[in-house]
Write a protein that binds this DNA or RNA. Sequence first.
DNA 1: CTATGGCACGGATT
DNA 2: AATCCGTGCCATAG
Length: 469
Amino acid sequence: MYQKQQQVHQHLTTAHLAQTMTLLSMTAEELGEKIASELAANPALELLDERRCPGCGRSLHPREICPNCSRPKQPESQDPIVFISPRDDFFTGTSMPVEERPEDNLSAATEDLPTYVLRQIAPELANQDRALAAFILTHLDEDGLLTITPLEVAQYHHILPSRVQNIIQMIQHADPIGVGSANSQEAMLIQLESLEESGTIPTLARKVVTDCMSLLSRHQYAMIAHQIHEPIKLVEEAAHFIGANLNPFPGRSHWGDTRDNVKVSDRTYHRPDIIINHLNNNIHEPLVVEIIMPLAGTLRVDPLFRSAIKDVKQDKIEDWKSDVERASLFVKCLQQRNHTMERLLARVVVLQKDFIDNGEGSLKPVTRASLAKELEVHESTISRAVANKAIQLPSGRIIPFSKFFDRSLHIRTALQQIISREKENLSDTELAELLKKEGYFVARRTVAKYRAMEGILPAHLRQKHPSKQ
DNA sequence: CTATGGCACGGATT
DNA sequence: AATCCGTGCCATAG
């Protein structure tokens, strides 16, 4: 298998390499556009409805996954299953109504918000529910909040409110998190929940959002402190955190509203390019890794076109030849890209299995360079493959692929643990000492930076164990 | 005086 | 070659 591919490597021309690189660095979505445009521009390129399993070669329906090859060879084996997952519907959003709302001022953005959200959740929805989700999503205002109540939706469609609730919940947990909530408060609570999964949040944050929204928006911290009988410092701390990390208007986080800007540095979530799951959602089963391919069917050079070349007039024949050339180059590059992605993912998933299962503490510091060496490809290949891509973990979280190569994440989580474990408020210097004992060599200044990254406040503003509450 | 955050520099990584 | 990251030094806050 690999030997075969290595031969392919040898045959690569510079054109191959250049285009493969470009394809590699593209998001699944961008790839979809690229393929579509290539398909439209080049008559020699053909999209065949039929697919053949890359493993065993038997023919498959457009979206079918080969039942033989997607099963591990030895059931015992912990080897991950990695395959290219064709999902054209995932991106074309076929169930999305085409009606445009007149007041839709989001259309200036690259893609409107409802479509964006629907694409994320569509794969997990039954077909009837997609239409329902689409309906709900058309009733978002420009802030990403819902303009109708779940009850109205249920009545309108004559279905159970609980079903509507379920769908709304899925919408709310899609990116931007909190979208589809009834009001800002609900949206922020959901964002808090999701932040809580990945790190610590100030103890009062939830309470403040729940009970004192109106005061909070007017920055009347003293009043809040009085009302909930808490020290004002803690309230300010919570408010600070809220201001920095939560967005009352989820519809604006991605859609370039400058007025109420939110930090989108490390909180930027994308639609996944790769989805990782456990077989049967059982943590003991091997991992299944889907590399999203925005295309169903087989892309190939149209054999009819190729054979028709000899009947073409002399003056046009050059054009036709170059079309065929382009098409075949494109197909090869695409295959090359997918193959590289498969190998990369197969290796990364093995290395970072603990991280995938157990979360951030178990992340191993892997550099792109080391992987490049293992896979015998150029470093820039890995870089491009990783850049701008998003991975969905079994937990449902969507994280940037680059997080798999974060050199400091494990130290940061160690830091988090120390802080949450120890009961005294430790200064940065002391924290640095403790980390050194655990084998993490970091300077005091660096501890401060990690703290900031994790949203942990300085020692004197922090309050440890919720012992005295 | 101690603890932190800002700025900026150098080395590693991409 | 460009970028990111850890770190040292310094100003400032408590």
